[in-house]
Structure formats: C-alpha cells, structure tokens
C-alpha cells in the first residue's frame, strides 16, 4: 500500500520532467510515445493487481492459532488461464511494436535529406552532400589533421560536400536520413527529444531516419526556456569524456535551412591538398 502511494507521489513529482509533456519532436517519436503509453497502461494494471494481491495475501494469511493452510497443489484450468491471458496481451504489444519497428527501421522516404554523422572521441561532425545530393566517398586511410573525416577528394562528388562541426541544422517537416559512422570506438547518436537512437560503429555504417515536427524556436516558446536546444547525447560508453560528447540539432523552417546551407563553404576549400598520400 505504502509502495503504491509512494509510486503515485513519485509520478506527480517527476512526470513533468520526463519530456513527455513536451511531446515528441518527431513524427515517428509520437508513435513511440503512444506505444509507450499503451505499454505503461497494460503493465501498470498488471503491476497494481499483482502487488496488491501479494501484499494482501501476505497480510491476510499470516500465521494464526488454529488456522490451517489450504491444500491446493495445482489446478490445470487456472494455470491455462494465466498462460493464455499474458500471451494474448503480449501478442498485441508485439504486433504494434513490430509494425512501428519496421516502419522506423525501414528505408527512408525518397525525398529525405541525407546527413552524414561521424562520431569520434569526443565530438560529433556532420557532412551534407551539397548540390549534387551525393556524399563523396571516404577512406579512413586518407585521414589527416586537415582532412579529419578521411574524405576521398578523388571522388568528384566530394567537392561540393559541406562539413560542419558539433551543430547540425535540419529543416522541419522533411524526413532526415542520417548515415552514421564512427572513427574510433562505438558511439551512439542519442536523440532523446526525437525518441531515436542508433549506434555509430567503426567499419560498419549504420543509418536512422526521422521527421522533425517542431522547430527549435517553437520548442523554446513551448517549454518557456529560451536556452532550449535539441541535444545529441552519446549513449554508448566511449571513454573518459563520454559524458561530455554533446552535439546540438537546430531544427528550423525550410527557408532558414536553405539560407543557412547556402552560407556554408564546401569541403574542397577546407582542404588544401586534394590527394593526400598514405601508406598502409
């Protein structure tokens, strides 16, 4: 009983801080929120029933003089009931879960914007494909102090690519597809506001897409916090400064995004040598 009151109190106190009241900042995240609520409802009911029964039985059937335990070794009907009922509820959850899972991990829509995200100890870098909409090839063996992503400038597609540190700009309402790389250890692009997450693995590119549905500016108004920013948190232990591996996402309107993109310089200018030499 005390436990339940405690749980309810706790809920009052912290619900406000869980990001739920803010709503999800992505279209896909809203579905995850919905599923989360359904799961919480189902498990919540089970939780209350079983815990109440557990403590009630413990209280009611304490040892008393003259009380005799009831010999009740098994009952097939009862056992079948509580095998099938959970199985049915779980099937419902699995069906919902997998429907969203396939949608979210499926191919990104054709019109999505591609951004390459690269993690290394302990920062995030981003690369936009530029006007040709194709990312230039990379080869980690070409990495130098200046060309720190190891872009292969022999590939013409790389010449108009745009390379940005720490802060990623994306437009609202358009699917964004991230191609995720890591240069050293496993990192993880954690997007708590968008309800998304994907590991960055050295040697195996991964991918994740989502559709932001609210701009940073609107979110500042909604939360009443002028300092608000969407953050990228590294969610996979990656070394001593893991806790400080922070990236920022600025969601803006399409016009703002296009304007911002036009102001950025392409990678060729950033890199003085086009063919760095490297030996194995």
């Amino acid at each position: 009983m005390f436990g339940l009151i405690g749980a309810w109190y706790c809920n009052e106190l912290y619900y406000g801080k869980t990001l739920f009241p803010q709503g999800s900042a992505s279209v896909e995240g809203e579905k995850i929120d919905l599923m989360l609520l359904i799961t919480i409802a189902i498990t919540g009911v089970v939780f209350v029933i079983t815990q109440v029964l557990l403590f009630w039985f413990s209280f009611k059937y304490q040892e008393k003089d003259g009380q005799k335990a009831f010999y009740f070794p098994h009952n097939t009907k009862l056992e079948l009931i509580w095998t099938t009922v959970p199985a049915i509820f779980l099937t419902v959850l699995v069906v919902f879960g997998l429907k969203y899972w396939f949608k979210i991990t499926g191919d990104a829509p054709k019109d999505s914007i591609v951004v390459e995200v690269t993690g290394h100890q302990f920062a995030w870098e981003f690369r936009y494909p530029g006007a040709d909409k194709v990312l230039g090839k990379k080869n980690y063996k070409l990495t130098t102090a200046k060309n720190n992503l190891g872009v292969d400038f022999a590939d013409p597609a790389s010449h108009d690519d745009i390379h940005i540190n720490t802060t990623m700009h994306i437009p609202v309402g358009v699917p964004v597809k991230m191609v995720i790389h890591s240069q050293d250890v496993i990192h993880d692009v954690g997007l708590p506001h968008f309800r998304m997450k994907m590991d960055a693995v050295p040697g195996i590119p991964t991918t994740q897409w989502f559709t932001p549905n609210i701009t940073t500016a609107d979110m500042k108004k909604k939360t009443g916090n002028p300092e608000f920013n969407f953050e990228i948190a590294c969610d996979q232990l990656c070394g001593s400064s893991h806790y400080a591996m922070r990236g920022v996402i600025i969601v803006e309107t399409m016009e703002e995004y296009k304007k911002w993109l036009a102001e950025q310089k392409s990678s060729t200018i950033l890199c003085s040598r086009t063919r760095p030499r490297f030996k194995i």
């Binding site: 990104a108 990312l135 191609v179 790389h181 040697g203 195996i204 590119p205």
Partner: peptide
C-alpha cells in the same frame, strides 16, 4: 547485413 551496409554505405548509395 553488415556486408550490405558496407557496400551501400548505410543505404546511401
């Protein structure tokens, strides 16, 4: 699956 991810660079080419 890793082979596919590598060959297509995470599905981007």
């Amino acid at each position: 699956a890793w082979k596919n991810l590598r060959n297509t660079d995470g599905g981007s080419r």
